[in-house]
Write a protein that binds this DNA or RNA. Sequence first.
DNA 1: GGTAGGATGGGCT
DNA 2: GCCCATCCTACCC
Length: 192
Amino acid sequence: MPAPEILPRKFYARSTVEVAKDLLGKELVHGETAGIIVETEAYPGGDDLASHSARGLTDRTRVIFGPPGHVYVYLIYGIYQCLNIVAEPAGHPGCVLIRAIEPTRGIEIMQERRPAAKRKEALANGPGKLTLAFGITRTFYGSDVTKGPLLVQRRAKETPFKIQTTPRIGITHCAERPLRFLIEGNPFVSRG
DNA sequence: GGTAGGATGGGCT
DNA sequence: GCCCATCCTACCC
């Protein structure tokens, strides 16, 4: 059985949609906490006005235009933070929003960080919830998921699954585009 | 089972 | 000043 392997940078240097789909089933690790990515959304930039990078390079969006495999975290509604991983070759914008995670390790720590979650399915079943459960803040902005402290690994034993595709959640621009991907039937997604 | 409303701060016009 | 890639609580079936 192969050992867990950190995904190499070239994994992320592909189209945003491919990276978003392929991140499903991979494991996100931060310290004692870990879990399987079960829901993502693609924000490819360019003509996709829902993407933060669509309006150009600013202090906030700089990392999205840089080399792939880096972390884009931003504050939403003044309270929550959302975790993205940069895709596409350097110079081309694109990032993947991590929307839901199935916890595998450090579940007690997550329960302490997320007292509002009454069931383990609700610990990380939303973009704001998973950053709380995993202790991810804006200080992670620009960090490298091939080096840490936040890591993405291939699992030692991957279980097969089907990918379900839907429109993205909570946006107004380009709301019809099918750029949300989730593991079909998984109870840890933000919504079926 | 469902949803309306409020919390709260940074980025952009 | 307005707009958010959200979540929780209260309240109503």
